[in-house]
Structures are given as structure tokens and as C-alpha cells.
């Protein structure tokens, strides 16, 4: 027991160090090169300098958003993989990201945000994601269990339908709205609204907090629903709450950063290789690793064709896909 806690603490300290290191790297990297040694001086000099504005007004919010979205997507992937006992399940492959993007797209077109404020973005994303998860789950219910391969196929199909509907909306939209939608769909961490960034940070940490109440239930669910129920787990209630949590995390991420693929697939997989399948360490480990991965991907996206920027989704797609193929060839993928 003590050995386990010591080992897990080391992993968490290591991953936290990684997040911090990636954060500092992201602070220093950009078109205006800022040396790491000058950062304390810039912060002490105060608000009047241009470097201070770049650090605190542009780079830090972007880093915080990257960490929040990376953590949220990775956590959503971990929750879904745990529930469905399928390592290929994640918000994107299940169509949840597609549903969320349709919701946000409708919000941009119908301007709900003009009526209820900036909260309309995450709310529409959450509603779109929830609708998809409700559809995928109920279309695949067979007696008491859910068929995970069928569910994955349904998710992929719903994802196609959602992206077709997004394209339909784009075709019907005015040029201003179209530009907004295209920029947002490409997936970027360049979010100017500070309130939305604060909401994303608070939301992803809240998601992690809620997930921890169900970490033992998730461990039991690895054995299948029947065996988990025989261990006293109320599987229906647990799955409902975790579905809502995963939808919330995905909806929130898509609303503030657009579609970013593969974070929820790759990160939990690699963290699981390091920690094993125990969700007591896996949840926090995936959250931290996801935060570091997306922030690092964003740094790469900013510098690789500087002074232009690539959408971060392109980088996560390429890195994620290559790493996953490498992992598949190296070791059998299991939960």
C-alpha cells in the first residue's frame, strides 16, 4: 500500500514537473523570443512593458487554455475507455466531438450568445455532445449491456452525419459567420475571451474532481458490467454520471478550442502503459499528461511554419496517429 502510494506520488510529481516545464517552454516560445532568465524581471517590472503584455495577456491565457482543454479531452477519453472497456473509444471516435461542434456551429449561426451571453458556447457544445452520447448509448443497448464495437461504428457514423450537417450550415451561412465557423473548426487555442478561458479551466478541474468519486467504480467496470454490479457498484447511475461528465468535458473543449483530435485516444493509452489500469492514478495522470501534450503541440504549431501558425488539431492528429501506430506495433493494446 505504502509502496503503491509512493510510486503514484512519484508519477504525479514527474507529470506535474513535465506540465510546468512545457508551460515555461511555451511562455518563452513565439515570434517575440523571450529568454527564460528574463521572465522574473519582466514580471517584476509590471504591466507597462510590451513583454509583460505578451506574457500575461497572450501567452499565459493560451497556455492555461491548452492545459485545460488537453486535460479535459484526455480525461474524457479515459472515462469513456474505462466505461466501454475499449481502447479505441474517445470523444472523437464516438462522435461526441462531432455533436459538440454541431451544437457550437448552431450557436454561431443562430447567435444564442447574443441572448444568453458567452456561456452559450460551452452550453451548446455540451448539449450537442450529450445528444450524441444519448443516441450512441441507446442505439446500442442490448438487454443489460452495451455492445462496444457496434457503439464505435455508430459513433463514427454519427460523426459523419454531424460533420455533414456542419458543412450544410456552412453552406447556408453568411460570409461573416462562415469565417467564424472555419476558424473555430480548424482547432486553435487562440481564444480572446478571458471569461471563457476561466470557465474552461474551472470546468476541466471540476470534471477531474467529479471523476475521482467514481475511480473505484471505473476499476470495477474494467471487469464488465455484471461483475462490477456483483461488487456492489450501481453501474447504471455511475455510467450516467460519467457520460454527463465526459459530454461536459468534450462540449467545453470543443466550444473553446474547436475540434482537436486524438488527445483522448493517445494520452490515456500511453499513461496506462506507465501506470497500469488503476483509475486512482490513471485519471490524474491522464489529465496532467493531456495538459502537457496539448500545450507542447501548440508550441510546435506556433513555431513549425513561423511566422504563420498551424491549427493545433493538425499537430495532435499527426503526432497522435504516428504514436498510436507505433504503440500498436510494439505491444498489444489492452485496458
Amino acid at each position: 500500500m505504502n509502496d503503491k502510494i509512493r510510486q503514484w506520488s512519484l508519477i504525479l510529481v514527474g507529470l506535474s514537473g513535465l506540465v510546468l516545464a512545457v508551460g515555461i517552454l511555451a511562455l518563452c516560445t513565439g515570434s517575440a523570443g523571450i529568454d527564460i532568465k528574463t521572465i522574473p524581471r519582466i514580471l517584476l517590472q509590471g504591466r507597462d512593458t510590451a513583454e509583460y503584455s505578451i506574457l500575461m495577456g497572450i501567452r499565459l491565457p493560451r497556455i492555461l487554455l491548452g492545459m485545460a482543454v488537453g486535460g479535459a479531452l484526455s480525461l474524457a477519453g479515459t472515462l469513456l475507455q474505462g466505461m466501454f472497456r475499449n481502447p479505441l473509444v474517445e470523444p472523437y471516435t464516438l462522435g461526441i466531438s462531432g455533436g459538440a461542434s454541431l451544437g457550437v456551429c448552431m450557436n454561431i449561426l443562430f447567435k444564442f450568445h447574443a441572448v444568453i451571453g458567452i456561456i452559450a458556447y460551452p452550453l451548446s457544445g455540451f448539449l450537442g455532445a450529450s445528444l450524441v452520447i444519448f443516441l450512441v448509448y441507446n442505439l446500442n443497448r442490448r438487454t443489460q449491456s452495451v455492445q462496444s464495437n457496434r457503439m464505435l461504428l455508430t459513433g463514427v457514423m454519427i460523426s459523419y452525419v454531424a460533420s455533414s450537417l456542419v458543412m450544410l450550415l456552412m453552406a447556408l451561412s453568411k460570409s461573416d459567420d462562415l469565417q467564424n465557423i472555419v476558424l473555430w473548426i480548424m482547432g486553435t487555442l487562440d481564444e480572446p475571451n478571458l471569461n471563457l478561458i476561466k470557465f474552461a479551466c474551472a470546468g476541466s478541474v471540476a470534471g477531474l474532481f467529479i471523476s475521482y468519486f467514481f475511480c473505484m467504480d471505473l476499476n470495477a467496470l474494467l471487469l464488465g458490467e455484471e461483475e462490477a454490479a456483483s461488487l456492489g457498484i450501481n453501474t447504471t447511475r455511475t455510467k450516467k454520471i460519467l457520460f454527463i461528465t465526459a459530454s461536459f468535458l468534450t462540449g467545453l473543449s470543443v466550444a473553446v478550442a474547436g475540434i482537436i483530435m486524438f488527445v483522448g485516444l493517445i494520452v490515456p493509452h500511453f499513461v496506462r502503459m506507465m501506470t497500469g489500469p488503476d483509475h486512482r492514478i490513471l485519471l490524474a495522470g491522464s489529465f496532467l499528461a493531456g495538459a502537457a501534450f496539448l500545450t507542447l503541440s501548440d508550441v510546435i504549431a506556433r513555431v513549425i511554419i513561423a511566422p504563420l501558425e498551424l491549427p493545433v488539431g493538425v499537430i495532435t492528429g499527426i503526432i497522435g496517429g504516428v504514436m498510436f501506430i507505433w504503440a500498436l506495433s510494439r505491444k498489444q493494446v489492452t485496458l
Partner: peptide, 22 residues
């Protein structure tokens, strides 16, 4: 409740899902 029942009755299933836990 499920929990109360699990304190009285334990079950060994016909097939066990082989997770990667020890």
C-alpha cells in the same frame, strides 16, 4: 442495495473479462 447484496453474495462468473490489472 447492490452494495448490501455484495456483502452477502459473491459470484464467480463463467467468463471473466481479462483486464490488464494484476
Amino acid at each position: 442495495s447492490n452494495r448490501a447484496l455484495a456483502r452477502y453474495v459473491a459470484v464467480v462468473m463463467q467468463t471473466i473479462n481479462p483486464a490488464a490489472m494484476t
